[in-house]
Design a protein around this nucleic acid. Structure first.
Lengths: 138, 138
DNA sequence: TCAGATTTGGTACTTTAGTATGAGGATGCT
DNA sequence: AGCATCCTCATACTAAAGTACCAAATCTGA
């Protein structure tokens, strides 16, 4: 999260720098100014998507209702809990990977760790145990 | 998804329009050009957030859709329902087979039928849907 | 700032799950 | 008795899941 702020700050600085550059370019060549503005617009468009994506991941965590102490007792990390939630929703490893913007490999690692920590041999057993422990609501 | 493309296209057109406007403004006053660029950047930043949020809302909608319950309506047989219960308890096909004194083959057939009738692609998805339909308690 | 935990990702396998298809016996309804 | 449905089981695959190790980049708490 800290890194996001740093990156965003750097982008602001970069934008200001571009503006200083623009002072000399814009007055001379109007057609190239169009491209610079377009680039800035597109860049910020995607930055908006990225930042929003980050914050929505945080919301997903808050949505699940498990106390940090509970997770701590089991040794489940934040990310692992997040995967566990998607698991209980019936998603495949590939689907979870796409939802969290990582590879299927990563999800397999997380799932393996979840199974170990919940002492389960299958994802369905992990879901059942998580429900018993009230890690999952509904 | 089509609408997203249309919206994005409209934004591009709007950007081009702004540029045409910029041709007359920028060349005259350089300091105001900075503000225009900043405004465009900020605007696209939030547009990025909005579009991203729209697409995520659509996914959420698809996920939550409950249809009329009861076994009969779904066409689930008694035996299939029995298997479904064991499924939700986290048992493997082999374990369920032993619990019900039949072969794993038989359980596979039952599970396949359950998946078809619940319109699920995985046992975990079937469990999630069965829970939504209150076929499974707790 | 440094160690330990977390997150991510890969390769190479083994094991379960799930699909498609067919088929015989049991059951219930008319 | 006849027909539909259910339950059972099998074979032969394909597709996911899961295991075991390893490795590197990040984060976090002292």
């Amino acid at each position: 999260m800290k890194r996001t702020i740093v990156i965003f700050g750097a982008l602001i600085v970069a934008l200001l720098g571009l503006m200083q550059l623009g002072k000399y370019v814009l007055v001379r060549d109007t057609s190239s100014a169009e491209w610079i503005i377009a680039a800035i617009a597109v860049a910020f468009f995607f930055i908006g998507i990225l930042i929003n994506r980050k914050s929505q991941q945080a919301e997903t965590l808050k949505a699940g209702k498990a106390s940090p102490s509970q997770l701590n007792a089991l040794g489940l990390s934040k990310r692992e809990y997040e995967v566990l939630i998607h698991l209980s929703e019936g998603h495949s490893n590939k689907e979870i990977a796409d939802l969290l913007f990582v590879t299927e490999s990563t999800i397999k690692t997380h799932v393996s760790n979840i199974l170990m920590k919940l002492d389960a041999r299958r994802r369905t057993e992990a879901i059942a145990k998580a429900r018993e422990l009230h890690l999952i609501t509904q």
